[in-house]
């Protein structure tokens, strides 16, 4: 019995599997991938995740098909002591592998860079972000402290509220900072994450596109009640936002006088532990 052409068989199985799986990943799995379409940035992440998944599927299938095939086709018979062929390498296969893997990872890096530079991707971009989206922006400051976030609206008299409410369709410029230890502001449905560092301003941009409630969680371990450092925010219409912020200004007017003046960073006292 002559040896079948393993390479051709493998290639055929892989090709069929890829042709079936990749469209499924793109068109069935893609649309349900997180974090949803709460903002332009979140929708961007869905696209990114879909692209990454689509590129990964053929790679994953190639390896799995290969390993399963090898385990089925290239077995020692039970109790056998046969030796395999003494092949020590194949320059063409090696070069092809290096070229293909390099091409894949370099194009992924290029794609990631392009997407990052498009609108900052909702990711904390430091105190002077490289990418600043054009157009008017609503500034909101996110202040992390053990164990809650508060939000300041400098363009509305610096009012500070315990809830984040954003107008829909408006580009928001979040300035994230901390009063004590490192926190991380994570608005899941909006696709935004930025670390809150003491004495540092960390800017992220987000443009909410859907009227919805979103969750905010701290995603950097910040001590005892880290797991409880969450709240909910809302994306509302422009008119609702106007009336909400007016209410907040009235409601928090008494405490506003006691707060320090608005600043993009708050450097904590080098206060040591109690004692």
């Amino acid at each position: 019995m002559s040896e079948p052409n393993h390479a051709r068989r493998l290639g055929a199985i892989w090709l069929v599997a890829t042709l079936i799986a990749t469209p499924l990943v793109i068109f069935v799995l893609g649309p349900v991938l997180p974090p949803g379409n709460g903002s332009e940035q979140a929708s961007g992440h869905v696209t990114d995740n879909t692209v990454l998944m689509a590129v990964m599927t053929p790679v994953l299938l190639l390896l799995i098909v290969y390993f399963v095939y090898a385990l089925v086709a290239f077995r020692q018979e039970p109790g056998g002591i046969l030796e395999g062929p003494a092949i020590r390498g194949n320059a063409r296969v090696q070069i092809a592998w290096i070229v293909v893997t390099s091409a894949i990872v370099l194009s992924l890096a290029a794609y990631g860079t392009a997407r990052l530079l498009e609108d900052g991707a909702g990711s904390g971009g430091g105190s002077s972000p490289v990418v600043v989206p054009a157009g008017p922006k609503l500034q909101v400051q996110v202040i992390g402290q053990q164990w809650a976030f508060t939000y300041r609206y400098p363009s509305y008299g610096g009012v500070e509220t315990p809830h984040l409410v954003l107008p829909v369709g408006q580009m928001v410029e979040l300035h994230v900072t901390s009063l004590d230890v490192v926190h991380s502001f994570w608005a899941y449905q909006l696709g935004v994450k930025a670390d809150a560092n003491p004495g540092q301003d960390n800017i992220a941009f987000v443009k909410p596109t859907e009227l919805e409630s979103f969750s905010v969680r701290c995603s950097e371990l910040c001590g005892l009640w880290h797991g409880y450092m969450f709240d909910h925010g809302n994306v509302v219409s422009a008119a609702d936002f106007k009336s909400w912020i007016a209410q907040q200004r009235v409601k928090f007017a008494p405490s506003q006088k006691l707060l320090p003046p608005y600043s993009t960073t708050y450097i904590p006292e080098p206060a040591r532990r109690a004692g």
Binding site: V105, L106, A194
Partner: peptide, 22 residues
């Protein structure tokens, strides 16, 4: 990546991280 440290260098670290998979 999201810490705000050297944010302009993120493309470099993205590239080097992708390259390590080669």
């Amino acid at each position: 990546f999201v810490s705000g440290i050297n944010a302009a260098l993120r493309p470099f670290y993205m590239l080097s991280t992708e390259i390590i998979s080669i």
